[in-house]
Design a protein around this nucleic acid. Structure first.
Length: 603
RNA sequence: GGGGCUGUAGCUCAGCUGGAUAGAGCGACGGUUUCCUAAACCGUAGGUCGUGGGUUCGAGUCCCGCCAGCCCCGCCA
């Protein structure tokens, strides 16, 4: 109902300007806001929208809020077109103006959405031109080469993918970038170690798989931490790598290739599309970044390291905190890479991505780091006017004990194991159910359903929580058949598919819609809220808002399904109700699609 | 010591630019199947929104102090 809320807002604005021209004037210099404060009604009994402006104007106008509300309503009513979509406004409480949309208007809105592939959600303006104003860089997932993807990558991967899908649906050109850790000290370490224990592996393709690599990594790390000589050799190896020494580069490429295969396996399972562009991509730009910072006068040498001192961030010793961009040994670090990436991503023409919005989906622990990097990028002038640079932080994945999620033996949980277990548990649930209900299903059905449910459960559980807080991971809860879970939403769709199988034609074009029952109207109103939810997610980058909406919609549908006969109803109720079923199914499918979750006909 | 995030029902969490009597789900208790998948629906109980101030017509929401938990704080990412 975005279009309606906008119309209402415009009409109110006009009314306010006419009624209180003196306030309109002072609103221009920001003293008083003439924002009509139109919001969705906080409760169904208050109608569809409520206007909260009367209370705010009471003081400047020196009148009672109810009196002001009355004046506003009177002015609104002069405009006959207002009544084409709105019922008579009601003043309530201290001075709220409650607005209810006319039922014929709601029915028209529903009719317009049926059969519309976008379900009434507008494309972002200017999407036809692939210019800067519509291009978004989304940096997510970003595992480290030579390590396996583990539970720590879960949230970034799932949240990032969902945000990408939402922005793409709105019409943005989205660059999904996997900023993999494919550079830096860890490789020096690993290559040094491999040279020592398995020199052949460094020039042979597929000499080992990722499992070995992980083991080697662990051992290399141990040497690095305990052996000074090894540490020095590793650092030298990094320098060789950075200077492009042939044998080092070759070894590095082999390592990357091996990891890539394993990552892709996970992405395929989760149906996630992402383009790899690791840290190493920015190597050619690192020196430029430092030089530019220098010529801008931002660079300071301190204890041999080149840094930029941050404004407003005080360190331990009372001095400003530095952001180190070049280490005393001449090497660059992640801050340098991140700065180079920001510069590249905002740059237009052939030397960059020409983005207008750059989004990082990483854990909240990196908030300080990004705040520092963003500040330096701003001060260096690398963020264009109107360009948005955003860190989308999320909390830790915890076990049910409230501590960091670990396996029983205390190790980090591998992502593939976690997904396997979700699917295995979904399979146990389904087989139990089939047995209880005496149903017969073939193995391919069971496999498809349990894979879908298991992966959906993992994704949905993560997305449905406000990402900023830590998240308590529980297979039992996410796979539960009740509550705000993926199975609950999928079940609503299965019910609709059941109606279609039993002879309900969902595809007819409905010209006449007639709704009589309160459950129908509740569902209608729910369906029409989709657009504002999507736009909200686009702006706030909070997928849990979409989840909450889909859950509420499923509840509305289940009540409707439970209390209102559909197939047994007579015309025109029958076709009207089938139309609601169809639009509900399309809405749930679209919404779940934006979460990266496929749907089922039967389960 | 400095900074960030969090603190809402027994548990897990929502709460959108400040707005009407703070909402879900789970768990507990009690109902509903001649009907489209009961993996559902309906009802009951349960809260001094960590705490103390302040701003405001109005504060879970904004500001300040304090308490608790987690995370970060110069050459790892």
């Amino acid at each position: 109902m975005l279009n309606l809320s906008r119309s209402i807002e415009n009409k109110l604005r006009a009314a306010l300007e006419k009624l209180y021209p003196e306030l309109a004037e002072s609103s221009e210099n920001g003293e008083i806001s003439l924002d009509p404060q139109v919001v969705q009604a906080s409760k169904p009994e208050f109608g569809d929208f409520q206007v909260n402006v009367a209370m705010a104007l009471a003081k400047p106008l020196k009148k009672s809020p109810r009196e002001i509300a009355m004046e506003i309503v009177k002015e609104l009513e002069k405009d006959k077109s207002f009544f084409s979509f709105c019922k008579t406004p009601v003043i309530a409480g201290p001075g709220f103006i409650n607005l209810t949309i006319r039922e014929d208007c709601l029915a028209t809105e529903i009719r317009n959405r049926i059969g519309d592939s976008r379900l009434g959600i507008p494309l972002v303006e200017g999407k036809e031109s692939k210019d800067q104003s519509t291009s978004v860089v989304l940096d997510f997932s970003s595992p480290n080469i030579a390590k396996e993807m583990h539970v720590g990558h879960l949230r970034s991967t799932i949240i990032g993918d969902s945000l990408a899908r939402t922005l793409e649906f709105r019409g943005y050109r989205v660059l999904r970038l996997n900023h993999v850790g494919d550079w830096g000290t860890q490789f020096g370490m690993l290559i040094t170690y491999l040279k020592k224990v398995a020199p052949d592996s460094l020039h042979m393709a597929k000499a080992f798989d990722l499992g070995d690599l992980v083991k080697f990594y662990r051992e290399a790390k141990q040497c690095f931490d305990s052996d000074d000589e090894f540490q020095t050799a590793s650092r030298e190896e990094v320098v060789k790598l950075q200077s492009g020494e042939q044998s080092s580069i070759k070894a590095w490429k082999l390592l990357c290739e091996q990891s890539r295969i394993e990552f892709q396996n996970i992405y395929d399972r989760l149906d996630i599309r992402i383009q790899e562009r690791g840290e190493s991509f920015y190597n050619p730009y690192l020196q430029e970044v430092v030089d530019d910072l220098d010529s801008l006068g931002l660079l300071v040498s301190d204890e041999g390291a080149k840094c930029v001192f941050l404004d407003g961030v005080i360190g331990k010793n009372g001095k400003a905190l530095p952001l180190i961009v070049q280490k005393s040994d001449g090497g660059f670090n992640y801050a340098t890479t991140d700065l180079a990436a920001i510069r590249y991503r905002f740059t237009c023409a052939s030397k960059g991505d020409c983005a207008s919005r750059v989004i990082y989906v990483t854990d909240a622990g990196q908030a300080n780091h990004f705040a520092g990097v963003f500040q330096v990028a701003q001060r260096a002038g690398w963020v264009p006017l109107g360009g948005r640079l955003e860190h989308v932080p999320f909390g830790l994945v915890q076990g049910e004990d409230g501590k960091k999620l670990k396996t029983r033996s205390g190790e980090t949980v591998r992502l593939r194991d976690l997904l396997d277990e979700a699917v295995a548990r979904a399979e146990m649930d389904l087989r139990k159910r089939l047995k209880e209900e005496g149903r017969q299903e073939d193995e391919s059905f069971i496999k498809k359903v349990t894979t879908t449910i298991g992966l959906a459960a993992v994704k949905y559980a993560d997305l449905s929580q406000n990402r900023i807080t830590n998240y308590q991971f529980s297979f039992d809860k996410m796979l539960s058949l009740q509550g705000n879970t993926a199975p609950y939403l999928l079940y609503a769709l299965v019910r609709i598919a059941g109606i279609a199988r039993k002879g309900g034609d969902l595809d007819t074009r409905m010209d006449q819609l007639r709704f009589t029952e309160p459950q129908e109207w509740n569902l209608v109103r729910g369906l029409l809220k989709l657009d504002s939810v999507i736009v909200d997610v686009e702006e706030e980058l909070l997928p849990n808002r979409l989840c909450a909406y889909l859950f509420e919609l499923s509840q509305l549908f289940n009540r409707f399904y439970d209390q209102v006969p559909i197939l047994k109803a007579e015309a025109p109720d029958r076709s009207s109700r089938l139309a609601l079923c169809r639009l509900t199914a399309d809405t749930l499918r679209l919404g779940l699609g934006l979460l990266g979750i496929p749907t089922l006909e039967r389960m």
